[in-house]
């Protein structure tokens, strides 16, 4: 079963001469219960893919199927219950004037779900937040705690797909592991599907079996992490990306620059 199926997803920003094609016919499938990675350098369109799937952008073209059913451009309440998203920056994704309680109670009220007290207690326990933090404002929480609140907010409607937009890149290294473990535990227990965007290949390697490599709005290839780490990736760009994440030095930088100039700006190999 495919949880998410994206076919020929394209999106354009700006008008006339400022027109920029951010995504160009992106296609990939995510199996149910899988953690699918999306990697690429900054500006390759990873986060844009997530925002299209989540429903934050409405002017895309192509086809997005959730659980086998096509979704429209508009955000519906039904879609909110299926897909939720965790944002990159826990300092910007929580409302500064809302306590944890208010943040978590809002989605329940919107969807007319009662029993909010019990559900909030449960979700706080799931993400490993102490109950006494429930009435704190974001400025009274640490970065890791804030990201846990953001995860709790995404989980409280019990979606079956979680879109993770670099969920750990704004966090301290020691806290990164904790947050990733929370996410892994929840997935094991609830059988969620994750679509994980990251430019940290170590995070991807820890979480995902399959991943898509993106470059300049295109999917270079969909590859198993084992193949990528074993240098069996089909595309030179994927191999370069992986190598660069392990050892990056002056000679490599020169090679990349040379390859870019030869290849007219992009590295298309093999």
């Amino acid at each position: 079963m495919t949880a998410i199926s994206v076919k020929n997803l394209s999106i354009v920003f700006g008008e006339d001469e400022n027109e920029t094609k951010v995504l160009d016919a992106v296609s990939f499938d995510v199996e149910k219960g899988e953690v699918f990675g999306l990697v690429g350098e900054s500006g390759s369109g990873k986060s844009t893919v997530l925002r299209c799937i989540a429903g934050l952008y409405t002017h895309w073209t192509g086809e997005i199927l959730i659980d086998g059913q096509p979704v429209g451009a508009q955000l519906t309440k039904e879609r909110c219950r299926k897909i939720q998203m965790v944002f990159q920056d826990p300092y910007g994704s929580l409302h500064p004037k809302h306590t944890v309680q208010t943040t978590l109670a809002a989605p329940l009220r919107i969807h007319g779900i009662g029993d909010s007290d019990r559900r909030i207690t449960e979700v706080l326990r799931d993400v490993g937040l102490a109950p006494h933090l429930r009435f704190r404002y974001p400025h009274q929480l640490s970065g890791g705690q804030r990201q846990r609140v953001a995860i709790a907010r995404a989980l409280i409607l019990r979606p079956f797909i979680l879109l993770l937009d670099e969920p750990t890149s704004a966090l301290d290294v020691s806290v990164q592991a904790e947050v990733l473990n929370v996410l892994s535990d929840i997935r094991d227990r609830e059988g969620l599907t994750y679509l994980l965007v990251s430019h940290d290949l170590a995070v991807i390697g820890h979480m995902c079996r399959r991943l898509a490599v993106m470059q300049q709005g295109l999917i270079e290839e969909v590859v198993d992490y084992a193949d990528l780490s074993g240098s069996r990736a089909q595309k030179a760009y994927s191999r370069m990306l992986f190598d660069a994440s392990h050892h990056y030095d002056r000679s490599m930088a020169n090679d990349i620059t040379a390859a870019r100039q030869a290849g007219g700006g992009t590295v298309h190999g093999a």
């Binding site: 955000l75 519906t76 998203m85 994704s93 929580l94 500064p96 809002a106 989605p107 919107i110 409607l157």
Partner: peptide, 22 residues
């Protein structure tokens, strides 16, 4: 355009609720 407004939209909040609540 902040993330917490995007998050509120993803929770299904109407424009009216976002304006008055957030």
């Amino acid at each position: 355009s902040s993330d917490y407004i995007a998050a509120a939209r993803l929770q299904g909040a109407s424009s009216l609720r976002i304006i008055f609540g957030s």
